[in-house]
Design a protein around this nucleic acid. Structure first.
Lengths: 358, 358
DNA sequence: GCAAGCGATTTGAACGATCAAATTGATCTC
DNA sequence: GAGATCAATTTGATCGTTCAAATCGCTTGC
């Protein structure tokens, strides 16, 4: 009986006034039914709710944004696509953000920028024009200037990753140390005692923590001395990974297992192993990081980041510090960080078959 | 001398009135300088422009959207991430859309939906609330109900891909037939005469056109009879690709080359070849479709879709049919389609080394 | 010299929502 | 029974912009 009568014409906007007229109340009462139902008498509320449904009313976002000075939009920059990198993390992250936002009636506004300067300019413009209420930053690491810049702008934001000044902004990060450490534990459990590490050059927070995970796990197992010299570094590309793999496999006493700081490097190590006539999984155990689709394709064990949880948490933290969303606390919550634990996905490259340990 | 004085406080919004006061003119004159400069006297215009720069004025999007009844936002649904599929096409497409939109001061609004029904509900809501002016649809194929549904909604949209009723909506598509046909040409040029095809089951527009590309190219080269029975079909997964590969390689007279309808299937064929002790590139030539990062990693030749051009074109077409953007034509441009040509990326799997042709 | 014409600019009203203050009507108090 | 109290509802103003119409000042024509 209560059909949605609202599909008359495409351009027909149903407004608060329409609903009010239909329900025989005033504009504001309808608004209250939506935003503060406790102020409205039960009986009236039901009548208005009926009217809302019958007319198919949906509050206009622009009007709301103008009055409330809040667009309910979150800005997110998508980086240029690197053909090279295997990242599907982006995809998953974006999805998690969009999903988490929608639950709170906040949507993602996507924009592009070719470099950090352009990104900052775009952020400034978006924030000043009221296009977005805040930002989510992706891939923040030591030395990144964006958090400081956004703070200077006065724009709320939450970052995936942290700078060396991580007390000064709001971040969520994956426990990279624990991830690599778990990988080493797994390999030790399988009987490996010479475990190499192929990582990034020192200086990046993420890379250093992954290396530290290798080191601390080895130390815990009393294998540090045995694995001395098995730590090689290079930039994040397949070619470089192959080079690192060769370096490890050319040693007098090569490792029987390798942990790579990324799947990209791991793929390179795989190539090197192939060249050496070694079968990955049988002659050489290998674990990557990121659990990209390529890892799946290649049967590569990999440390999987809990991206979905990261996205959800980031949105939660961001929404908390958007003015107007929660009025109970006048002082915005101070800068906070949260660390989430990754999980190891075991595949053929490290586990399904028993490796040959020299 | 003309410094940007606008960074007093975070919440300080510079409005049209501020600029007007500063420049000694009225609100509307400032608005005209921005939206219809020809109506303003040169001298005044310069004065106002100075004021705009000095105060760092940026028009408020919400106010603009409310008055103009246009949010300058384009809705785009991101699909759930399939771990399985290797698509990076998404990434590239998204980037192209965002880039093209930004040039016209239109931004992408991202949303998620678990199934077509939920997607339609989300579209309805976004459109009715004025959250977006129109939509970009991704991956439209025969039998897809979304174009019809959006048309029913009265929402402008442009689709990547087309239904069987492709005269009824606005689309951009890649010339799948030409892509596969080019791949076959390339293989014939390299001396192959028995060329197999691993594709999708009949019924999908995209899949059928790719198969048709194989057939027409063979016909052109007079190889149709010779390749009879080399056409195998299965769903889009690596496992299925491996099965199709085995079926082809188990034949009495197996093909010396295979074109796969996707990189995913091609990866499966690669696995099958490995099991058969065949080296891809030497014993078996292989071409995939989509040019995913995995193709790059594996040295797989692949047909690359001109996604960037597709994105740009789609946004252009969509903006053309947004009311208000172009007022010259009162009747909106009729439904149009555009077909863009893909290019073949040759890698080791089909070309760099001379294949052994039995 | 005055109406008409015209370009440049201003004024008033909207767009659709929310906030703050005012109004209504019923109940309670002394 | 007059005034105070309180919940429920309404009215007026406002957010920042753009559209439509009105105004201003100046030239032109007869």
């Amino acid at each position: 009986m209560s059909q949605d009568l609202s599909q008359e014409r495409g351009s027909s906007q149903v407004t608060l006034d329409d609903v009010a007229g239909f329900a025989g109340v005033s504009r504001q009462t309808v608004s209250n039914v939506i935003n503060a139902p406790e102020r409205v008498r039960e009986q009236t509320r039901q009548r208005v709710e009926q009217a809302i449904i019958q007319l198919g009313y949906q509050p206009n976002r622009a009007a709301r944004a103008l009055r409330a000075q809040a667009s309910r939009m979150i800005g997110y920059r998508i980086e240029p696509v690197h053909e090279q990198s295997l990242a599907s993390i982006h995809d998953r992250f974006l999805h998690a953000l969009a999903d988490a936002g929608r639950e709170a009636d906040h949507y993602l506004l996507l924009f592009t920028a070719d470099d950090p300067d352009a990104e900052l300019a775009a952020c400034t413009q978006l924030f000043r024009t009221g296009g977005v209420d805040g930002f989510v930053l992706y891939g923040i690491d030591h030395g990144d200037h964006r958090p400081a810049a956004l703070r200077g702008l006065g724009a709320p934001f939450a970052a995936f990753g942290r700078t060396d000044h991580d007390t000064e902004h709001c971040w969520v990060d994956v426990d990279n140390l624990a991830g690599v450490s778990d990988a080493v534990d797994h390999l030790v459990e399988r009987g490996h005692r010479r475990i190499g590490f192929a990582g990034w050059p020192e200086g990046s927070g993420v890379g250093d923590r992954r290396a530290e995970g290798w080191r601390t796990a080895l130390a815990r197992h009393g294998l540090l001395a045995e694995c001395h010299g098995l730590d090689v570094r290079g930039t994040d590309s397949i070619e470089e990974g192959a080079r690192l793999g060769r370096r490890l496999l050319d040693l007098d006493k090569p490792p029987s297992a390798v942990v790579a700081a990324t799947d990209t490097l791991a793929v390179g190590v795989m190539q090197a192993a192939r060249v050496h006539g070694l079968s990955v999984g049988r002659d050489l155990a290998l674990v990557g990081f990121d659990d990209t689709p390529s890892a799946h394709v290649l049967g590569l064990s990999s440390v999987r980041q809990p991206i979905e949880a990261v996205g959800r948490t980031i949105v939660e933290m961001l929404l908390e510090r958007l003015p107007g969303t929660l009025r109970q606390t006048d002082t915005p919550p101070g800068p906070v960080g949260r660390l989430l634990a990754p999980t190891l996905v075991v595949r053929d490259s490290s586990g399904a078959t028993v490796p040959h340990v020299p």
